[in-house]
Amino acid sequence: MKEVRQAVLFTVVTMVLFGGAYPLVLWGVGRAVFPSQAGGSLIRRADGSIVGSALVAQAFTQPRYFQPRPSGVDYNAAASGGTNYGPSNADQLTAMSDRRGAFARINRVPDERVPAEMVTASGAGLDPDISPESAEMQIDRVATARGVAADRVRQIMRQHIAPPALGLLGRPRVNVLELNLALDQELR
């Protein structure tokens, strides 16, 4: 009987401590110190409406915008996920070949130069970043669609390259949503 009582009390007290107090304290810290990040890094328009999250990819199909990586879930940030295709899957090989052809065609680059990340879906289908190389290949298309000089677009893109953290961790990357918002802002 003592065994059962101890087990029940231990469950209750640790549930209150770790399920209740621990998240509440962190929530308080987040609100006080990192209000934007703790709320989901949301980007808002002047009227306060939400454009998206800086950390979450959204679909871009118009030629005037840089495109993010393919998504296995159509950029659904309420049901994220990967394709879970294995490397030997025929459907996967077809999908990759289709994406390669499409990227090469609209950006006027040879098939074999299309970066791997632009023909594969990311783990969550929400990868907000592309590599600087992938962005570079899209510059001419974006500049033509906007009727501006390619160098102007290139200049804005280069300002959005995030280097490896501490010069060591990760790879250089470009946040697609932030870059496209900057284009809209600076190239009216």
């Binding site: 962190l26 110190v33 709320g39 989901g40 949301l42 454009v51 950390l55 979450v56 871009f60 659904n76």
Partner: peptide, 30 residues
Amino acid sequence: IVLMSQGTPMTFEGAARAATVEGASQTIAR
């Protein structure tokens, strides 16, 4: 706390509803 500083959410608010740049709607779970 380190994770929050990098952008991991900690909020009791429900999913955010965004109107994307191209005008679609996106529900962002957090």
